[in-house]
């Protein structure tokens, strides 16, 4: 049990995923919701790399993890731009108080 194998990495990734979901649903601030999304994406990435090491998939899992990192960077940039726009319009970025689509 103490010998580190695939299950240990998957366990860490499962807990990290759950913590990310918890951050997404409980935080008010939109930037904190973004941090939760980053945790979830990282948990998925750990799974990709772990299966790439312990399964017979060669390097493919690591390539997909690289793509996920690129997508996370693009997502963070776009989401931050939207958050800045929301802040200009509503003066705060609490996701439970912003409930209008127009000015």
């Amino acid at each position: 049990m103490l010998q580190v194998g695939l299950e240990h990495f998957l366990f860490v990734s499962a807990i990290l995923f759950s913590l990310g979901i918890y951050g997404i649903v409980t935080r008010k601030n939109a930037v904190m919701v973004l941090m939760g999304v980053e945790l979830v994406l990282n948990a998925a990435n750990i799974n990709f790399v772990a299966f790439s090491k312990f399964g017979n998939f060669g390097i493919n899992g690591q390539v997909i993890a690289l793509f996920v990192i690129v997508l996370a960077a693009a997502e963070a940039a776009i989401a931050l731009a939207i958050v800045l726009n929301v802040y200009k319009t509503f003066v705060n970025i609490n996701v439970d108080e912003i409930n209008k689509l127009r000015d």
Partner: peptide, 9 residues
């Protein structure tokens, strides 16, 4: 899990 030692360089 069916693990198999991968051929990672």
């Amino acid at each position: 899990w069916q693990t198999e030692s991968a051929k990672i360089p």
